[in-house]
Design a protein around this nucleic acid. Sequence first.
DNA 1: CTAGGCATCAAGAACATATCAAGATTGGGC
DNA 2: GCCCAATCTTGATATGTTCTTGATGCCTAG
Lengths: 235, 235
Amino acid sequence: MTDVGATVLMVEDEPQVRRFLRVALGTAGYIVHEAATLAAAQVAVRDGAPAVILLDLGLPDGDGIAWTRQFRTHAATPIIVISARGREEDKVNALDAGANDYLTKPFGVRELLARIRVVLRQSSGPSVDVEPDVLRFDRLEIDVAKHRIVVADAEVHLTPIEYKLLVLLARNAGRVLTHRQILKDVWGNAHGTESHHVRVHLAELRKKIESNPAQPRLIITEPGVGYRMKEPLKL
Amino acid sequence: MTDVGATVLMVEDEPQVRRFLRVALGTAGYIVHEAATLAAAQVAVRDGAPAVILLDLGLPDGDGIAWTRQFRTHAATPIIVISARGREEDKVNALDAGANDYLTKPFGVRELLARIRVVLRQSSGPSVDVEPDVLRFDRLEIDVAKHRIVVADAEVHLTPIEYKLLVLLARNAGRVLTHRQILKDVWGNAHGTESHHVRVHLAELRKKIESNPAQPRLIITEPGVGYRMKEPLKL
DNA sequence: CTAGGCATCAAGAACATATCAAGATTGGGC
DNA sequence: GCCCAATCTTGATATGTTCTTGATGCCTAG
């Protein structure tokens, strides 16, 4: 009556809750991985490639919401937040940070399982795209997993928008992305025609990653259309 | 601060709740469609193509859960169920029937909006879907997905008008397109008889894609009528 | 031979982009 | 809760690209 042996990563510090969920999820046919801290979760995600993450807020080593936001910059694994905090504010923050669902303790196991099925159902659809953790472009190196940019062997600091912009372009290297597409992906659906934003932040980005920003070699302007990142050299 | 004017279909029979949600959703920037019955919802979905459906259970003309199950056999539009029934049983049934989320009345508007953002975020997908859409003509290659033109293994830069012109001709290869048709498609309906524009830009285009622009092999002039692109080699 | 349609060129207008800088906003630390 | 630092937004201006427009000459059909 349940899904296959999908892997669920449970991020939770209270031993009692862990035992409880371990049994419930195990019985339902899932493979359960566990982490008691965000740091451990980070490792578990990379090693275990879970199909869904159950994230308890209020872990000892950091803010789960901030972690979620950070995580979402490079991964799409569904996150179901589980929290004792039931304030609307908390829910909105978590969901906007990138969580797929938010359950307030106490909750019923059957509801949890149903909600896990929902997110699995969604993610099973549009295939699994495995992409390398490191994207390389000439003297530019993007380590998506570690959220690190290296230009000519020197680490470079990018602001959140610059980072999103760069990863978007890099993931679509060789393809022209229109202003509209970029706005939608980096800013969210709202901003109608403010392509000026794109220009400003793209200029900043070029300053940081191009050797000669006045004559860009990595990010090419397609006047009247958008921008294109040069494809990396083929092997 | 919110998404674009995505369309939300509200399926709800109580006038008070409808008015309340209409205002809340409208303020948040959504276009709101309304239906008081499942039958009306069916029609509204077909006509309005909503981005998300808010479904109240317990409508006068049928079982919302059964409707959801039926709906899911042919459509993937996200459904957020809103119900006064808070029993775990109800939630599990609705979610397993295909609902994407389940909110129990009373609920906060901000939470609802956040959950709408979640499902919209998911369905908007990874923005750029890869469609291998390449048109080939001898030594000319048009990659529509990437917006890229290659002539004899060398990338060629086209201006927006040139690109539109080329794609239009390529998509209608073998057929003669009149000046009027070209003007309408590339420039828009306004320009009455300015076929001179076509000539100028077509000359530019030929310079870029023909090996000998004076004796065009790809784009043929049909005197007195218009232009025609040579059909690509068949496989 | 002539008229109409076509190709080509060049210059300025219209439009799009790059860059700088100041004000507004956000988020984190105290 | 307040303040500071970082970041984002917004506007102004300079620069660069593309489009339009008109002039000119060629070719072909009648």
